[in-house]
Write a protein that binds this DNA or RNA. Sequence first.
DNA 1: CTGAAAGCGCTTACAG
DNA 2: CTGAAAGCGCTTACAG
Lengths: 364, 364
Amino acid sequence: MVTLKDVADAAGVSPSTASAALRGMDIVKPLTRRKVIRQAQRLHYSTNVSARALRSGRSGIFTLIVPDLENGYYARLANSLSNRLFARNLKLIIQVSQYIKTKELRQIQELRSSMCDGLFVCSTHNSAREIQQVANGLPVLLFDDMSVQNQACYDSIETPSRDGMSAAIHHLHACGRRRIGVVGGHQGALSASHALSVTLRRNRYRQALDTMQDLGMDTSQALVACDWSTPAGRRTAHALVRQGMPYDALCCMNDALALGVIRGLAECGVRMPEDVAVTGFDGIEPGAYSVPTLTTVAVDFTEMARMAVSMMLDHVGQQEGHEDSGRTPRRVIVGYRLLERESTLGIHAASTVQRDPETQSKSI
Amino acid sequence: MVTLKDVADAAGVSPSTASAALRGMDIVKPLTRRKVIRQAQRLHYSTNVSARALRSGRSGIFTLIVPDLENGYYARLANSLSNRLFARNLKLIIQVSQYIKTKELRQIQELRSSMCDGLFVCSTHNSAREIQQVANGLPVLLFDDMSVQNQACYDSIETPSRDGMSAAIHHLHACGRRRIGVVGGHQGALSASHALSVTLRRNRYRQALDTMQDLGMDTSQALVACDWSTPAGRRTAHALVRQGMPYDALCCMNDALALGVIRGLAECGVRMPEDVAVTGFDGIEPGAYSVPTLTTVAVDFTEMARMAVSMMLDHVGQQEGHEDSGRTPRRVIVGYRLLERESTLGIHAASTVQRDPETQSKSI
DNA sequence: CTGAAAGCGCTTACAG
DNA sequence: CTGAAAGCGCTTACAG
């Protein structure tokens, strides 16, 4: 293995100078820098990350914890984040918590001394406070942090639940639907120990209801309780059909759920959108190929990853100066686009396939 | 930050002893070990991985390179591998190569000194030899290595192309189909610089053809050229319908493709399986919720991850003794299960949803 | 602008 | 079975 010393010797400088030159510090004379860089290339030198991390405290490695990589939402997020970091020569460790609260906490805890510069978390069960207790000072950024406002202790990025749900309801209204079921919502007070995702469910549900009321719709029967998963969506569709399908539209709180609903309704011979219109939330790929294709609120994942990395690097940088203690956590809401497809417009509409530019050229 | 020295002091032993005790070496007296462990827990000590890696050359971190995390096959593999490693207290960095040959090589190259103990690669464009040139001695395990036999220089794990395709064809034959199109195949000689995946396509295609011939079917019109992607599958379905649909079954080489085919056929009003039966390969989740659900060769991902980790750890261990140089690379083929669903059996069949046990409890 | 020295926190021979 | 010493490959003050 070729070390920094080898490069320094070859270039006729000291290791300190070689180190500074390779890191692009501007205290080193241009000519010296060029000499060092040339030798480094010639010798195929590359920095030993362990040594750098041990000495400097920075490894250039970040960690993302998601509940499940097979869910299109998390896969897309992981994809975008990995790409965004790679562009800055940073790496991403991905861990899967399987929706298990204790597993997630244990994973965070083990990160403590593990040469990881920062943590991105999609938590479904732990509040910012609970994460903070085990994170041991590690910079953290949360996706859809559901802590109550004054409990927020980390920067976070939110999906556009408010405007997105409102857009979905407005669209269904414009399609002439007046009996909308909001699938996957949650009503009532939050218990002390509820899963955090319950807050997200309640937020989206509230927004849907408010919009319906603004539009003069009756909301007394709007809630359709349901897990946010494809099998749950399918079961719910069957249950609704057994009850005589009291809705002419089903506004689903995420795409996984909506795809299950579409499958379930199809099994029961319900026509979409003639009998029932369906909308989703997230904008994952299978919704562009289901029958019918799924109208959905497509989150801007590229922007989400860009902001996440930028906020994280701010945080990591600030920490250096020990000045982040008093800072108020930022909450940023990501953009979206309503993709109007067959599940609300009928089969004559053009089917839109939307993907990140970064993931466009895919086939083998 | 609490260091090994703190633990050693608290337990009244030397750092060397504390280190040995915490790593479970059996040279240390049980009583001593217990004392050390107790103090480590009390102080919330955890090993600094950078320091350990720098000194010992082992970080406990592995890397997986996949072309795309949003493809269900790679997502499932990443999920399984991450979980399997986590169970052994090892970590997984995931990098996305986006099907770009040079990006993949660059990613491997940068791994060299980057505290990574081993590399898992799903390569679509680089041969084992090409990878070896940049891997710089790093232990590597390949998924579906398509190097010609005598060029193999790494252990590899293969999807059950042979038996799986054969099972799919036998199943279609048993369903009474005699005009089978093999979608996504490849025929003819391999060019010197072909994408590796072309070899996989040819392998699966060959096996399908052989099986058809064994069963007495005409194979002269069997090849349906097509990329292995959902959009390509959809386009192909349209093209076939325009030609008057010369097949009564389409045997697709992976699920992504098959899901596009199903969508495309549905758009054209083709009934499945009455007019055309469809099969896939992989066993990813969306195939359990499409309309119709997709009959497919479901790869045993849990076994795949188990074997991958086990083979990798063997390799990492052996390397320690410098005795792996002359070893012949192993090739292991993973198991599968034919999931018979609606796209071949019709809608009265039970729809089977199969997932790894590890990914079963999923909903938020 | 450059270099000599110290040290990050471990593990590894080696001596006892 | 345990401990003192050395050193993994860097970066960071600090002196020139």
